[in-house]
Design a protein around this nucleic acid. Structure first.
Lengths: 130, 130
DNA sequence: GGGATTTTGCGAATGGTTCGCAAATGAGGT
DNA sequence: ACCTCATTTGCGAACCATTCGCAAAATCCC
């Protein structure tokens, strides 16, 4: 059942460490560049495979950006919350909100829409970039 | 200034008519298939170019779907609103809401986040699919 | 350390999207 | 209607991100 095995390897540790220190969505290519900058030689294929694995485990959030490039961030989508994304530096801050849930409820009543999920993204500038 | 010219051509009319009758996000390939089904021979390149044009004019909304494929819908992003997307048939209904705006305001106060935009998508089942 | 199994790297294949250029089409004047 | 000329189209090649197949290397467990 589930994954047959789960080896701890250098490439996986390196990739995890890149993700762990970047509070923003990164593309596979960006992660790969980060690895090279750290002197860690890892193939792009491995980056993709590791990201797939992390996604399957529910450890990362996947987000296709505006032009279709897929980006990844260490962030469990398990517990429902939203993101505030800085337009300048890309920094992501978590936003969780009961108010939003309330709003979703009211929508259910108005339209004949049986709601079972929603996704929100806020854009603007974070404290550091302002 | 702006676009130098703006010819009215069959391909453009056909593509617009496909978009006009589909209240859901379509990929370039889906639009192309729709054209063939109508007996309209238009190259995929032209589909892409026409979509780019419509986007530049602000007539369509562009949305990369979960796996990065880019999809398009006739819908002016000009006036701010959100979408309720049916998980079953993909039908999109507009949702506009002052309540949401209010919520956005409160967020601005709490986090040091200078908000200048947000995007929401609701998922569920529409009346027809329920 | 040895051996079975998983993971990696490489290069090739894939799929969506873009580009370059010659041929076709639309707009406007005659 | 016809001409002219700028714009648009179709085609095929090019491009880029992502996936795959397979042999070599790394990991785990005994």
């Amino acid at each position: 059942m589930g994954l047959r095995a789960d080896y701890v390897t250098r490439p996986r540790e390196w990739i995890a460490s890149i993700l762990a220190r970047e509070p923003r969505f990164l593309s596979a290519a960006q992660i790969h560049q980060g690895l090279e900058r750290d002197g860690a030689r890892v193939s792009l294929s491995t980056v993709y495979r590791t990201l797939d694995r992390l996604q399957a485990k529910g450890d990362i959030t996947v987000r296709p950006d505006a032009d279709g490039e897929v980006t990844y961030m260490l962030c469990e989508p398990r517990h429902h919350h939203h993101h505030a994304i800085c337009r300048t530096c890309g920094r992501v801050e978590d936003v969780d909100c009961a108010a939003m849930e309330q709003f979703a409820e009211s929508l259910r009543a108005h339209n004949g829409f049986e709601l079972d999920g929603h996704a929100i993204e806020f854009f603007g500038k974070c404290g550091a970039c302002r």
